[in-house]
Write a protein that binds this DNA or RNA. Structure first.
Length: 273
DNA sequence: GGCCGTGTTGTTAA
DNA sequence: TTTAACAACACGGC
């Protein structure tokens, strides 16, 4: 569920709750979620301080005082929580570190078990992500590079925005909202979108992501930040999961379809090919 | 009870 | 090469 604004929200809460604290003991109840060597992961994330909490695309990065970085990806249903150490393991709790004096723990819960952890030497984080094809950050990419990376093919605009190689961090909700804001039909092939409209998409992307971060993300069913707070951007959604309801701009009924296997929402009057 | 859909992404196949 | 389907998994809704 979490896209860039939700991950950014989690990273900011982790900054307040975990940065400066010491990871003590690791409990790994579901070993499959750690993709790197388990023994090294346990050794390097034990008795070490958390220096920085940051984000890259939808990855959460925790820089440790030993020059290693924990990479965490929430995928669909992953959640962090800081809990009292005495609280028992609950259903779908897969990992935790006890913190400082052991009175609290940073716990990871993931209903669908898609979430993943890795351990990478801090200087190797960016090369690692680039090697996996992860594109630039939406707030750092220039209009020209964004226009270039969108490409010119028969691929739909929606599919291009979801492609993390184009820009890292967009998912299903914000792809739909960005295309609505830019007035582009989600099925439009990228080759039919000229420079002027690419500029519009770039601006819409930054505007919507900024507002969503300010609202602490969008909560549908699952998303809550580490402090268990839901995000409020749901109230600002124009099309996502609003099919059957009136478009906020023109009143036309919002449509629903399926593009590259993903549920897609758009206004048939405001969004053009 | 069975099927469909769910906010992601890496792999496989066309 | 480019694009789409699928699998990983659990759960709620119809």
């Amino acid at each position: 569920m979490p896209e860039l604004p939700e991950v950014e929200t989690v990273v900011r809460v982790l900054h307040k709750t975990v940065v400066g604290r010491r990871l003590r003991q690791l409990s790994l109840w579901q070993p499959k979620i750690v993709e790197t060597d388990r023994a090294a992961f346990e050794k390097r994330t034990t008795n070490v301080d958390v220096r920085v909490s940051r984000r890259r695309g939808k990855w959460i990065l925790l820089d440790l005082s030993n020059e290693y970085t924990v990479l965490a990806h929430l995928r669909m249903t992953g959640k962090f929580a800081v809990v009292p150490a005495t609280s028992g393991r609950e259903r779908h709790d897969h990992l935790q570190w006890s913190l400082d004096d052991g009175t609290h723990a940073l716990r990871f819960n993931d209903q669908r078990r898609f979430g993943r952890f890795r351990l990478v030497e801090t200087p190797h984080v960016e090369p690692f992500l680039k090697s996996r094809g992860w594109g630039p950050e939406p707030f750092e990419i220039s209009v020209d590079e964004f226009a270039e990376r969108l490409g010119r093919s028969r691929r739909s605009m929606k599919a291009a925005l979801l492609d993390q190689r184009v820009v890292a961090g967009l998912g299903n909700i914000y792809a739909d909202e960005i295309l609505f804001a830019a007035g582009i039909h989600p099925a439009t092939p990228t080759l039919r979108v000229g420079p002027a409209r690419r500029l519009l998409v770039h601006a819409a992307m930054q505007d919507i992501l900024s507002r969503a971060i300010a609202a602490q993300g969008t909560s549908l069913q699952n998303f809550v930040a580490v402090n268990q707070r839901p995000g409020s951007f749901r109230e600002e959604l124009c099309v996502f999961r609003r099919d059957g309801k009136p478009c906020p701009l023109c009143g036309t009924t919002v449509s629903h379809t399926r593009i590259v296997g993903r549920s897609t929402h758009y206004c048939p009057r405001c969004q053009h090919w």
